[in-house]
């Protein structure tokens, strides 16, 4: 169902846009304002990150946001309530993003059921590779949710095929090595890698890590289906508030 939403939208837009927020950073009110403005500015999907104390795959910007959110009292329960609220209000698919310990402590089955009950469409858990994810994958499938899988430039063709065989919704392709937030070189290498991803997977492709301007979007159009903007919107908000984020997203969003 996530996949068909993406395919439908794709008929009108050559590249969809997925953004990311850390719930509770800098406050839940600000998080709500971010969602509202992002949706109004034309975002097609959103990742809602449940903050974790050890966000190993995140760079300094998102790491700090995780830490601050927790310091200010963000809990899993508050994040679930927040997610439920925005999922009911705004007409785009929302996905959780978090680290394995959060659903593990919640209980994989309960986490998947709650995710479905509150109206989210899937989850992205970067430290839960498929070898470790049997229970999680099963619980997500049972609840008709998409447990988003990842490709990286170092993923072999054989492994891509394995991952693709369990993929649902879309595949998140890391544009480069490293953590979130650093620059990505849009190069022939990236184009070749995306061609490799396309060959391996039949579901749509999202590309993230370091996407930040129109030129990046132009490069990706035709090579992928969804561009993911993460750290850049947090940077924008820190500098210019929610209005800056809205203008930034409006400038990126492809005309329908």
């Amino acid at each position: 169902m996530l996949e068909s939403y993406i395919r439908d939208k794709h008929k009108k837009k050559d590249l969809l846009l997925m953004t990311h927020i850390v719930m509770g950073y800098p406050s839940f009110d600000d998080s709500h304002a971010m969602v509202k403005h992002m949706v109004a500015a034309g975002v097609d999907l959103m990742e809602l990150q449940i903050p974790f104390s050890e966000p190993m795959a995140d760079g300094p910007v998102i790491l700090k946001a995780n830490q601050k959110a927790l310091e200010q009292g963000a809990t899993v329960a508050k994040c679930l309530a927040f997610a439920k609220d925005v999922a009911a209000r705004y007409p785009i698919p929302f996905l959780f993003m978090t680290y394995a310990n959060i659903p593990y402590r919640f209980g994989m089955a309960a986490f998947a059921k709650t995710t479905a009950d509150i109206g989210l469409t899937g989850a992205i858990v970067p430290d839960l590779p498929m070898e470790e994810g049997a229970e999680y994958l099963q619980a997500m499938e049972k609840n008709h949710l998409s447990p988003i899988q990842m490709f990286s430039p170092s993923t072999s063709d054989a492994r891509m095929a394995q991952i693709a065989s369990i993929a649902s919704g879309f595949i998140y392709c890391l544009a480069r090595k490293g953590v979130t937030g650093a620059q990505t070189d849009l190069s022939d290498d990236l184009a070749q890698y995306l061609a490799r991803c396309r060959k391996a997977a039949s579901v749509p492709l999202a590309v993230g890590f370091g996407i930040k301007d129109r030129a990046d979007m132009d490069f990706l159009a035709g090579r992928a289906d969804i561009a993911v903007i993460g750290s850049e919107t947090i940077r924008m908000m820190e500098r210019g508030g929610v209005a800056a984020v809205r203008d930034f997203i409006q400038g990126l969003s492809r005309s329908a």
Binding site: P129, E132, S152
Partner: peptide, 22 residues
Amino acid sequence: MKHRGYYGDFGGAFLPEILIPT
């Protein structure tokens, strides 16, 4: 990569995709 490195219920390799070949 296989499911390995378990001691009873503990251990494993909860790796981000980028580190799998490493």
